[in-house]
Amino acid sequence: MDMMQSPEQDEIERTVAAFLTEKFPVRGHGHSFKRTEPEIADELWQECCNLGWLSLGLSEEAGGVGYGLAEEAILFRELGRGLAPGPFLSGVLAAHVAATAGDHELVAKIISGEVRVALATPLNTDEASASFSGDISLVHTERADYAVMITPNKSAIYAMENVAVEPVDSVDISLAVGRAKFDNVHALHLVDSGASSLYERALILAAAISVGMAIEVMRISVEYSKTREQFGKPIGSFQALKTYAAYMASRCELAESQLFFAALAVEARFESARSEALAARFNANEAARINGEHAIQIHGGYGYTTEYTPYRFVTRNHVIERIITLRSAVIDAI
């Protein structure tokens, strides 16, 4: 038993983090409240695909790098930490669905960046089905050729060519969000979620994004508290702020531990794997949400502006905690 990252896993973390810091600096949006640029620039998306980010956890037979769920979780934690835009989560999940369905051609197109996939979450708690009708919320709609839907029992890929997407004025303006009404849309692939632990993978990778955000929003808040002075000393010296900070750190430690415990439990096919994955998602959501709230409070008036960055973690988490499965459904299934 070893719950610490190996040197090789540290290397994945370092490489991804360095790339994100250089290419996706986290900034406030200032006066722009609408997205004016693509969610992710084409060249940048291509570069990420070329780095193998969409195929990290796919087996080598399926054309992937051959790492496990823990390494994928490390990648997504870093993507969360860096608030990366782009259809990473949907791309990785769709590649796993396609691989499970044995469609190696589609796997290759997804992981090479040739096609893009949006993330579909049904508005009701419907299961994905061979012919889906109902309202759908979509994230990463830009240039999406397909949509992937992961639900507890079934997972599906739908072609988007005949689907009209109505853009939504997203709370997180860096993401392309939309709504669509599916009317008997036929699944290109429909597989059992249990077959390749697809639902657990979706829960864990979403949790990884939240864990990364919880860690980073804590870090910027702690740094701010060391430099911001009131009453002649750094506000970080006051016990009221230390209480916030200590609990932020506790939430990160617990959520991150549960994230990796769950990832390993899924890979080892523990009987409790689903419960562990749900618990990972629950703890990660709480950590990102509450740490974000504290971050705004610690930054005071600055935290209420779009010139500083705490709101970016809060609004991104607002999206992340709603995709795939809602909070109440997660709790009920633990």
Partner: peptide, 25 residues
């Protein structure tokens, strides 16, 4: 009650995982 019980269970599971991680550290 169910949600209180299960969310507390999830937190306790995470504390167990953090204990495993502390041992590894």
């Amino acid at each position: 009650y169910r949600r209180k019980l299960l969310s507390l269970k999830a937190e306790i599971m995470a504390l167990r995982s953090a204990t495993y991680r502390a041992i590894s550290r």
